[in-house]
Design a protein around this nucleic acid. Structure first.
Length: 214
DNA sequence: GGGGCGATGTGCT
DNA sequence: GCACATCGCCCCA
């Protein structure tokens, strides 16, 4: 079937080498696949956020190139994985092209294959292995960690790949402020598929100041 | 060399 | 709704 062929198609680098805000919309409905000795898990992306390098104070690239964020400087289509809060990993797809940093954080998705393995990897997560609600749940369900940083998702032989999946109609895409981000809170660079059970609940970022605020 | 805090998840109140 | 676990990164001294 035509749709199945599209589901299986590995996305090409030139499709991904675009502004992260546009890439975020394009990734919705796409499928991230991880293959390990344990098995295969596939996840249809339902919620993402754009982080656009140098002029975005919330981006890891904002203060320049460092060993940690090196992958974000391109090339596009690679996986940027980072460690946060001393216990979680988050995964991004790098956008734009060489020399221009930017990426899309993968926040949530629906497990379309390998629910048993997903549940085994994250037994306490709500959704019983069928949804990955939140960026750290998403990475653990797929078995991603620091070792997967820099993988080329457009390489058809890679252990982690990005498949085209289904395109999502514009009217089904919603947007709003990014979760857990205090800087640039007015910029609606979070995108999600309306009605998806995987979409995480909004939480504003930044610690509440002791009493300075208002 | 030291300290503050973060693109979070979970369980308990 | 809130506190807390837990540690690497980055800024500043």
């Amino acid at each position: 079937m035509e749709r199945d062929a599209q589901d299986e198609r590995v996305m090409a680098r030139e499709e991904l080498a675009i502004d992260p805000v546009d890439l975020a919309r394009k990734l919705l409905g796409g499928v991230l696949e991880s293959r390990t000795p344990e098995g295969i898990v596939r996840l249809r992306l339902a919620e993402v956020e754009a982080y656009r390098g140098l002029d975005d104070p919330a981006s890891h690239c904002y203060r320049g190139r460092t060993p940690r964020n090196d992958v974000m400087w391109g090339p596009a289509g690679h996986l940027y994985v980072y460690f946060v809060y001393g216990m979680h990993f988050c995964a991004n797809v790098v956008g734009l092209s060489d020399g221009q940093p930017g990426a899309v954080l993968l926040r949530a998705g629906e497990v379309v294959e390998g629910a048993d393995l997903a549940r085994k990897r994250r037994p306490t997560a709500r959704g019983n292995g069928h949804v990955a609600k939140g960026p750290a749940v998403l990475t653990s369900v797929l078995g991603l960690d620091r070792a997967h940083n820099g993988i080329d998702l457009t390489d058809s032989s890679a252990s982690v790949r990005l498949l085209a999946g289904e395109s999502v109609a514009d009217e089904r895409i919603r947007s709003g402020p990014r979760v857990g981000v205090a800087a640039a809170i007015d910029i609606p660079w979070r995108f999600w598929i309306d009605g998806s059970p995987a979409v995480s609940t909004y939480r504003r970022g930044g610690r509440v100041r002791p009493r300075a605020e208002r």
